[in-house]
């Protein structure tokens, strides 16, 4: 009798029922993990470059840009930086310090340039050669402006290259990225032929992915302008530009942080109609 009843006390398989909290914890953990893995972290802070074609009037002033090529060599001083930025930045784009950097870092290091420049210019020349040809074809209507733009791009490329070699130590990363952003913007604008249906106030935000060689890997419309033709034209512009080999000169850290994935904002604000 004793043994039978004794076993009944502690033989009762009482297992405390702890079910809800662990189940919840497990589900929540896996859900957050899934979300974290599927969420696109890269798009959270892409740099946005605004591509607003400048009105023609300002485009004409681009010729000024050719003037400042020789200038950097004879040591441009304080006043020069101001005229330089104006030509390419057109109507001030949103991204902050784009215009300034082109000239800023120059004052200090013109001495090392003589040795470095010859190295850099050959890098820039091959770029100039292939570019003008394709550019003339897509932009039949405004041949002269396209030529000017090609010239401007070449100028920009050389200036950027010079700046890079001359001011490696001086140029801050922000200035470098700003000048490269300006280069990208200018290139894309040159290839951009807006559809007739484009209106002022339209905005298309594209997400662009580059690889370190400067080639465009993917273009997607993040925010449509509402006009398919306009979106198409923006995508075409980037696809035609194809690659920005100048970016190879950029230190890889800067590249990863800004140009691996960035947004390009297209808005035609110069339109008169």
């Amino acid at each position: 009798m004793t043994t039978v009843s004794a076993s009944s006390i502690y033989a009762k398989p009482v297992v405390p029922r702890i079910v809800v909290r662990p189940a919840l914890a497990s589900v929540v953990l896996h859900a957050t993990l899934l979300i974290a893995l599927t969420a696109n972290w890269a798009t959270s802070t892409p740099k946005t470059i605004t591509a607003k074609p400048a009105p023609m009037v300002i485009n004409a002033r681009l010729v000024d840009a050719s003037e400042f090529r020789p200038k950097p060599k004879p040591k441009p001083v304080a006043p020069k930086p101001k005229p330089v930025p104006k030509p390419q930045p057109k109507p001030e784009p949103k991204s902050e310090p784009k215009p300034a950097p082109v000239a800023k870092p120059k004052p200090v290091p013109p001495k090392p340039t003589p040795t470095a420049k010859p190295k850099q210019t050959p890098v820039a020349q091959p770029k100039e050669a292939p570019r003008p040809e394709p550019r003339v074809e897509p932009q039949k209507p405004s041949k002269s402006s396209a030529d000017l733009a090609a010239l401007a791009r070449a100028e920009l490329a050389t200036v950027v290259a010079e700046e890079q070699s001359a001011a490696e130590a001086v140029a801050t990363s922000a200035e470098m990225t700003a000048s490269y952003a300006a280069l990208i913007r200018q290139t894309v604008i040159n290839y951009w032929s807006r559809p007739p249906s484009a209106r002022n106030g339209m905005e298309a935000l594209l997400s662009i992915q580059l690889i370190p060689t400067g080639e465009v890997v993917s273009v997607t419309v993040v925010r449509s302008s509402g006009n398919t033709a306009f979106d198409r034209s923006a995508m075409n512009a980037v696809e035609k530009a194809g690659s920005f080999p100048e970016l190879q000169n950029l230190p890889s850290r800067e590249f990863e942080s800004t140009f691996r994935r960035f947004s390009l904002l297209f808005r035609p604000e110069d339109l008169r109609y």
């Binding site: 702890i18 079910v19 909290r21 662990p22 497990s26 896996h30």
Partner: peptide, 17 residues
């Protein structure tokens, strides 16, 4: 993975108790 996490948390609660 779900089950093992369930059991991990459940065990830890039980052990703490």
């Amino acid at each position: 993975s779900m089950l093992s996490w369930y059991m991990i948390v459940q065990r830890f609660i039980y052990f703490r108790n």
